[in-house]
């Protein structure tokens, strides 16, 4: 009696979940891997895109944080996933930096992952703490010639790279102090232990608005709307130290073309609604709208540029 009941149960379950064959993408939950810890700008934007996509597709988009090694760990996980577009990576410009500085990567950044859609672009900003008074970038450079100036580094990331780029343009050496995330570095900056931190506007904005730290330079050709009084690095006397960051979606190489097109279209739709634009601008970033080819080309060009810079300035991921 009992065993026939269990057979019946089993049979009805088999029927209820009978495999759905080749329906339109996405016909099951999609995973979006964020290769940085929760709360980072990558995380905030990634979750925003995941939420938008899941509403658009009427299919859940599960967010997974896989932090570490400047984003390489999360990227490697996606590189190894099934090439069906159901595992996406929400990475940022750190992707190309990482590829430029690390000798042995757990995946091939050129071959294993396919850039599909750029979601947002953003600006980097340098902020100084109160250990020693550093009102502007000129003063940072002047003091760095005679004493140690500590900057907050996050492994091989855009933050570290921005600081090293600035240092090489200014012709000085800054001392790297590594942190797990930007929030930990901000605590040391606010606590008067760290001297300078180059971070995304999102990470530094609360402290700048609170006047606990001084914003000394925007690393873009133009100033940022969030902090219009802060000069660009060129205005501050260091042209050539510009670097913008971006956030975008990658998938495992080998995913079908129609899936790529669907993701590209989806991301572009999600980030360009009026509410999305307002939200993104509030985070001091701008929505992007690029085709798959444009984004792939951007990634490729950047990769070459970073590699050259990394070799010239001897920047390594240790």
């Amino acid at each position: 009696m009992k065993s026939s009941l269990s057979k019946l149960l089993l049979a009805s379950m088999v029927l209820a979940t009978s495999p759905v064959l080749a329906q339109q993408y996405p016909n099951k939950p999609v995973t979006l891997i964020i290769p940085f810890s929760a709360g980072a700008s990558n995380d905030i934007f990634g979750r925003f895109v995941a939420d938008g996509l899941s509403k658009l597709w009427k299919q859940s988009v599960l967010v997974e944080n896989r932090a570490g090694a400047g984003g390489a760990i999360g990227a490697a996980a996606v590189a190894k996933a099934r090439p069906d577009g159901y595992t996406m990576l929400f990475s940022s410009s750190s992707y190309t930096i990482n590829a430029a500085v690390q000798k042995s990567m757990p995946f091939d950044p050129l071959k294993d992952l396919k850039p599909v859609a750029m979601a947002m672009r953003g600006q980097m900003i340098g902020v100084t703490g109160s250990r020693i008074p550093l009102p502007d970038l000129k003063e940072v450079v002047r003091l760095a010639k005679t004493q140690k100036i500590f900057y907050g580094a996050l492994g091989a990331s855009s933050t570290t790279f921005a600081a090293e780029l600035f240092a090489s343009v200014a012709g000085v050496k800054l001392e790297a102090v590594n942190y797990k995330g930007g929030n930990e570095a901000m605590i040391d900056l606010l606590g008067g232990r760290l001297d300078i931190y180059f971070g995304t506007v999102t990470t530094v904005l609360p402290a700048v608005l609170n006047k606990s730290v001084t914003a000394v330079g925007v690393m873009s050709p133009t100033r940022t709307t969030a902090l219009p009084n802060v000069p660009t690095v060129a205005e501050a006397g260091f042209p050539g130290a510009e670097t913008d960051i971006w956030w975008g979606v990658f998938v495992t190489s080998g995913a079908p073309a129609d899936v790529l097109a669907k993701i590209n279209e989806g991301v572009n739709t999600v980030v360009n609604t009026p509410e999305a634009v307002a939200f993104i601008e509030k985070q001091a970033a701008l929505p992007a709208k690029m085709s798959i080819d444009e984004f792939s080309k951007t990634v490729l060009t950047e990769l070459g540029r970073w590699k050259e810079l990394a070799e010239k300035n001897n920047i390594t991921g240790d």
Partner: peptide, 24 residues
């Protein structure tokens, strides 16, 4: 125990929580 736990596992972890576990 199989008759009880198999459906239970599927309902809790797959149907309700949506974990990436396959039944078949």
């Amino acid at each position: 125990s199989i008759a009880v736990l198999l459906p239970m596992t599927w309902v809790i972890f797959v149907a309700l929580l949506g974990l990436q576990l396959r039944l078949l």
